[in-house]
């Protein structure tokens, strides 16, 4: 394991998470320790049910850990009150979902504009910026289309644009390519690399998809609620992909 020079953007210490109580309790995380560094694309892999989704939900600030410490972008998410946590998410977190979760009644441009509007940007300016970003992700001519009128790959590009438009410190993705064919999946990963990995920003991607490992700087293996392996891929190969 190589330790990078930078301050970590995400620090998880002895993080546990249990669903339910008593007989029917499920322990999803059993003391996960993980640092995520800015400027890197980290893959989180592991067998089904090992706790991947649980872990990125905690890092994204949408789920409370049962115990342990979580610090993201200099905020302690364990002690942060609910109201401030919403504000924290609005500013610092971008989320890409497996099934896109776009709002069907908003146009492509309006969907992408939502995070800016949440951050109190005016409707007009937000939509204008969204249109610029849509240009960059290759959807410049589909800004007025509704999500239902777009292909799966286009919808995923749209949801990536939505996850990055407000320049969040961390972008988390849960299986962003599993609903897409190989070709489209690669395009989506290229797009993510190009737009979500920046000097002070990090990208965390949960995947089962072996085909996209080549895009990663680092692959973290989770098993039964614990980090079991942490591989750093050669920086050269990932640099080529950029």
């Amino acid at each position: 394991m190589i330790s990078p020079r930078t301050q970590p953007l995400v620090t998880c210490r002895r993080v546990t998470r249990q669903y339910g109580t008593g007989e029917r309790a499920t322990v999803a995380l059993r003391g996960a320790d993980l640092d995520i560094h800015p400027g890197e694309l980290t893959l989180l892999v592991g067998p089904s049910g090992c706790g991947k989704t649980t872990l990125i939900s905690i890092i994204a600030g949408i789920l409370k850990p049962t115990s342990g410490d979580v610090e993201v972008a200099e905020e302690n998410l364990v002690t942060l009150p609910e109201r401030s946590k919403a504000l924290f998410r609005a500013k610092n977190v971008g989320i890409v979902f497996q099934h896109f979760h776009l709002i069907p009644t908003l146009t492509a441009a309006e969907n992408v504009a939502v995070p800016l509007i949440i951050n109190r940007c005016s409707q007009r300016e937000a939509v204008a910026r969204a249109r610029d970003l849509l240009d960059e992700v290759g959807l410049g001519n589909r800004g007025g289309a509704f999500p239902g009128e777009l292909s799966g790959g286009q919808q995923q590009r749209l949801s990536i644009a939505r996850a990055i438009i407000h320049e969040p410190r961390i972008v988390v993705c849960d299986e962003p390519t599993s609903a897409l064919d190989q070709q489209t999946g690669r395009q989506v990963m290229q797009l993510l690399r190009r737009h979500a990995v920046r000097e002070n920003r990090a990208l965390l991607v949960v995947t089962h998809d072996q085909r996209i490992f080549e895009f990663a700087d680092r692959v973290v293996h989770l098993e039964d609620g614990r980090i079991v392996r942490d591989e750093r891929l050669s920086s050269q190969s990932s640099a080529e992909l950029n």
Binding site: A60, I62, R83, A86, L87, F88, R89, A90, K91, V93, I95, F97, H101, I103, P104, V114, P115, I118
Partner: peptide, 14 residues
């Protein structure tokens, strides 16, 4: 509800 859930995850306060 799913759309409200998405908005909530994106940081819209209650």
């Amino acid at each position: 509800l799913p759309q409200f859930g998405t908005l909530k995850a994106m940081g819209v306060r209650n």
